[in-house]
């Protein structure tokens, strides 16, 4: 159970997040929607400690996340993917996934140097986990490819896979559909819907593509200018007048009300 209370973050005079409350239950796919600059990615960066909020609290189960350093967040089960894809470019797809699995037990340098039983066991388990992720995402054929060689859409999949190999309890996905052809959005949404059951992890998803969000998520929070403007089931949020205003501007809203889902509500 993730809970943000009164989180505010600003850069100089710009308010990126404004007094945000956010709850995400276990075992579900939640989504955060909003136009460019609404503060969605900033929320993820607060949760995994890249940004230090000026006020508020972030609680995950019994852990006060704001007391952790950013590399410790994953130990409490929170993993993430990146909007702009931050793969380890010179490593193969498989090695990228292994880095994700490496945090589960981190053998020391000397343990690794002498290939002690602990290091060998870690290697076996990491490889097993990475194989399972390759299969789940159907990217086994890319395993030996260098990450830098892949097209953007596939890099996004590998990025998501790397976050999955960490054995997360909560997976933060930052625009997983960006750079993917629209034809693949539905299959991606299906994959994301499977994550709570197959991987025993809840998902917090950010995306511009309204179609993807509506299809994948069961709980949606809409943001505008850093503040929460609506929350509820996908249908409730989609028909909320404030959400329509934020996406389309008030004057167009009346005419375009019906067309919004099809148009994808790009921000």
């Amino acid at each position: 159970m993730l809970g943000l209370r009164g989180v505010s973050l600003s850069f100089g005079g710009v308010k990126a997040i404004d007094n945000l409350d956010l709850d995400l239950s276990d075992g579900i796919v939640g989504a955060l929607i909003g136009a460019n600059g609404a503060g969605k990615t900033s929320v993820l960066n607060v949760i995994n400690r890249f940004y230090e909020p000026q006020s508020g609290s972030v609680q995950y189960d019994d852990v006060d996340i704001l007391r952790l350093r950013s590399h410790q967040v994953i130990k409490h089960g929170i993993s993430r993917s990146f909007q702009n894809v931050a793969l380890f470019n010179q490593l193969t797809v498989f090695d990228n996934l292994l880095v994700g699995a490496d945090h589960i037990s981190r053998p020391g340098l000397l343990t690794n140097l002498f290939r002690l039983p602990k290091a060998r066991r870690h290697g076996r388990e990491a490889r097993k986990r990475a194989e399972r992720v390759l299969e789940f995402l159907d990217i086994s054929h890319l395993r030996a490819r260098r990450a830098s060689e892949l097209p953007f859409g596939e890099r996004k999949l590998v990025d998501m896979g790397r976050a999955l190999t960490t054995d997360p309890k909560l997976l933060l996905l930052d625009e997983p559909a960006a750079g993917m052809p629209e034809a693949r959005h539905e299959s991606l949404a299906k994959l994301i819907r499977q994550i709570p059951d197959e991987w025993e992890a809840s998902v917090l998803l950010i995306d511009h593509s309204m179609a993807l969000v509506l299809s994948a998520a069961s709980h949606v929070v809409a943001m505008d200018f850093g503040a929460k403007i609506a929350e509820g089931s996908p249908d409730e949020v989609r028909s909320d007048p404030r959400v329509i205003d934020a996406y389309l501007g008030p004057q167009d809203a009346a005419q375009q009300d019906g067309a919004q889902a099809e148009a994808g509500l790009e921000g």
Binding site: I74, D95, L98, D102, A126
Partner: peptide, 27 residues
Amino acid sequence: SILASSTGRAFAAVRDSEAAATAMGIN
């Protein structure tokens, strides 16, 4: 032996992306 292990991967991860390495639990 070091380069082929999780230690070697951590070195490369820090080289390629410090942000992603941090998110993957690497100090």
